[in-house]
């Protein structure tokens, strides 16, 4: 965090520079199914952030040796468009982009039933069209609904938002200037229905009390975001709902779950099969307690564990690079580094 806490970001009445209260989210809208070619997609606008998420898969993984024998790999590609920030970003992927891609894919892995699709990859592309602070959180929120839109089985959706510290006060959902001039932020990925934290990082200096307050605030924020995610999905699917139960009723009598379809092209044998208990195979170990909120621990798989260790490391290696005002690079130099076609060739060719 660049901020030294000297910039006045919140007034005596608790109003922030953009008029929000300390515990208020930026306006959020989520659109589902925005890209035709993708298996699942979503566009999120959170304040001035605009991010598109696309999911392809599960599909074959190349090179094959990277495939996991017992589950799907979730590969995330978080990318900032060159024009998404004030100073043009170089088109080549940065270390920051790679790290964010990794922590998002770790978080998503914790909620996806990856064991349903061994040896495959589920690719999640996140393209930031405009960045306004908190893009990793908005990306995770969008990725999560895009996965659901792709029909991929999940334990629940992850909603994500950062809490932070401005002028020694804990606030929710930092935007651009607060991110730059504030004194710390804690991005959080949280699944309300499971009460699980699948992404958390910290930047800046917090007292234990401040951290705890921050966590509480972000969980409240994530729960609000979750409702928006849920509504976006329901609205999209309410429009195209298909009452398959009609078929199930019609075919109930002649179809037995174990019936083997015949070699010949008989449509009858192709009718819906109910697959009672099939789900049990893929379900994580049943829990003992009744309420979902009380025992996230008993059924935590390996992945979430890994995610939880992540932040410690990440804090060291990832000082929020992007939004800080970087010294202006000489654009000319950047042109040369680009792996893209550039004017230079054009000139030389002449």
């Amino acid at each position: 965090m660049a901020g030294d806490g000297t910039v006045q970001l919140i007034d005596e009445k608790g109003k922030r520079l953009d008029g929000r209260n300390f515990d208020e989210l930026r306006p959020i809208s989520i659109k589902i199914g925005v890209l035709e070619n993708a298996d699942g997609s979503a566009e999120i606008r959170m304040g001035n952030n605009i991010i598109i998420a696309a999911v392809y898969g599960p599909r074959e993984l190349h090179p094959k040796h990277r495939a996991l024998p017992d589950r799907a790999l979730i590969q995330c590609f978080y990318r900032m468009s060159t024009f998404s920030v004030n100073d043009r970003k170089s088109p080549a992927p940065s270390r920051r982009e790679k790290e964010i891609s990794m922590i998002i894919s770790n978080a998503l892995t914790s909620v996806v039933f990856t064991e349903k699709y061994p040896r495959t990859t589920i690719d999640v592309y996140l393209q930031v069209l405009q960045a306004d602070g908190g893009t990793r959180c908005a990306s995770l929120t969008a990725a999560s609904v895009a996965l659901a839109d792709a029909g991929i089985p999940m334990r629940g959706l992850i909603a994500s938002v950062a809490g932070g510290l401005i002028n020694d006060k804990v606030v929710l959902d930092l935007y651009d200037i607060e991110d730059q001039k504030g004194s710390g932020d804690v991005p959080l990925g949280y699944c309300p229905v499971l009460d699980e934290i699948s992404l958390v990082q910290l930047d800046g200096v917090f007292t234990l009390e401040q951290f705890e307050e921050c966590l509480k605030l972000s969980i409240k924020g994530a729960t609000e975001i979750y409702d928006i995610q849920k509504k976006a999905l329901q609205d999209k699917y309410a429009a195209i709902r298909a009452d398959v139960s009609v078929d199930a009723k019609e075919t109930k009598k002649e179809v037995k779950p174990k019936e083997e379809p015949k070699a010949e092209i008989k449509e009858e044998s192709q009718a819906v099969k109910e697959e009672p208990k099939e789900a049990i195979k893929v379900a994580p170990k049943p829990e003992i307690k009744a309420k979902p909120k009380e025992e996230p621990k008993t059924e935590v798989k390996e992945e979430p564990q890994a995610v939880k260790e992540e932040p410690k490391e990440a804090v060291k290696v990832a000082p929020k690079p992007e939004i800080k005002a970087k010294p202006k690079e000489e654009p000319k130099a950047e042109v040369k580094e680009e792996p893209q076609p550039e004017i230079k060739d054009e000139k030389e060719a002449k």
């Binding site: 039933f113 659901a148 839109d149 029909g151 991929i152 089985p153 999940m154 334990r155 629940g156 229905v193 999905l233 699917y237 709902r241 298909a242 009452d243 398959v244 139960s245 109910e274 697959e275 009672p276 208990k277 099939e278 789900a279 049990i280 893929v282 379900a283 994580p284 049943p286 829990e287 003992i288 307690k289 009744a290 309420k291 979902p292 059924e299």
Partner: peptide, 18 residues
């Protein structure tokens, strides 16, 4: 049947669906 997991006494959906 499909699209559901059971944890404790509760049944949860695993997919977007009907």
């Amino acid at each position: 049947g499909e699209g559901i997991i059971k944890r404790g006494d509760y049944y949860y959906s695993t997919v977007v669906g009907l």
